[in-house]
């Protein structure tokens, strides 16, 4: 008997009587001002949030904040003037020296400052992880309160890869002392578009 058949047979033999899945939870936490909550949670996990009224304001902020940095890439057409052209089809290893990556998120979640990003918004899967600094743009209307709403929003969407990103890469493995920039971005900026 193959391992597969053997394992499945043993599972069938040993699993208990069927119990039902619980009903979906209701009445989950709601915030009167989800954007404010998102900003405060993000601050707590080492990120920064800016509210901007349009791309023009966003561009000027990026220009000042990341002045002097050489390699800035983005998947957002509105930011073309700031960023490297035709970068998307290179081998993933070649992004090792990207200083700043600017991508969009489908939505953000106030309770944990996580942003949902799928492959189609990343250019390549490795981008939000390999860059030195990460910038994510999200619309104000797309800040949800909690994770239940988040998965309702994702629903049965098709993606090859998707991830929630909450703040910069971090570790506290050395004596529980928090250090930002473990392997991935050393900081994370979120622009909330009005």
């Amino acid at each position: 008997m193959s391992s597969r058949a053997q394992i499945l047979a043993r599972v069938k033999e040993n699993q208990p009587t069927l119990t039902n899945l619980p009903a979906d939870l209701t009445g989950m936490v709601q915030y009167p001002d989800p954007v404010a909550m998102f900003g405060s949670v993000l601050d707590g996990i080492g990120g920064m949030m800016y509210r901007v009224k349009d791309y023009e304001e966003l561009i000027s902020l990026v220009k000042t904040q990341f002045a002097g940095l050489e390699r800035i890439i983005s998947t957002i057409p509105e930011l073309e003037e700031l960023t490297e052209k035709d970068w998307q089809d290179l081998p993933p290893h070649s992004y090792e020296d990207v200083d700043v990556a600017i991508i969009k998120a489908h939505f953000g979640v106030a309770e944990n400052a996580a942003l949902w990003v799928t492959e189609s918004l990343m250019g390549q899967r490795v981008i939000p992880f390999i860059c030195q600094q990460l910038v994510i743009v999200v619309h104000k209307k797309d800040i949800l309160s909690n994770m239940q709403e988040a998965y309702q929003q994702i629903s049965n969407a098709h993606y090859g890869f998707g991830t929630f990103i909450a703040g910069p890469s971090k570790t506290a493995d050395i004596e529980q002392s928090l250090v930002l920039g473990a392997h991935g971005p050393k900081n994370m900026t979120v622009f909330v578009l009005a």
Binding site: V41, I45, E111, N112, A113, A114, F129, M147, Y159, G160, F161, G162, T163, F164, I165, A166, G167, P168, S169, K170, G184
Partner: peptide
Amino acid sequence: QPITTYSSHFRT
């Protein structure tokens, strides 16, 4: 933490 920094969903 409210969530881990990365919660990555690998599908393909």
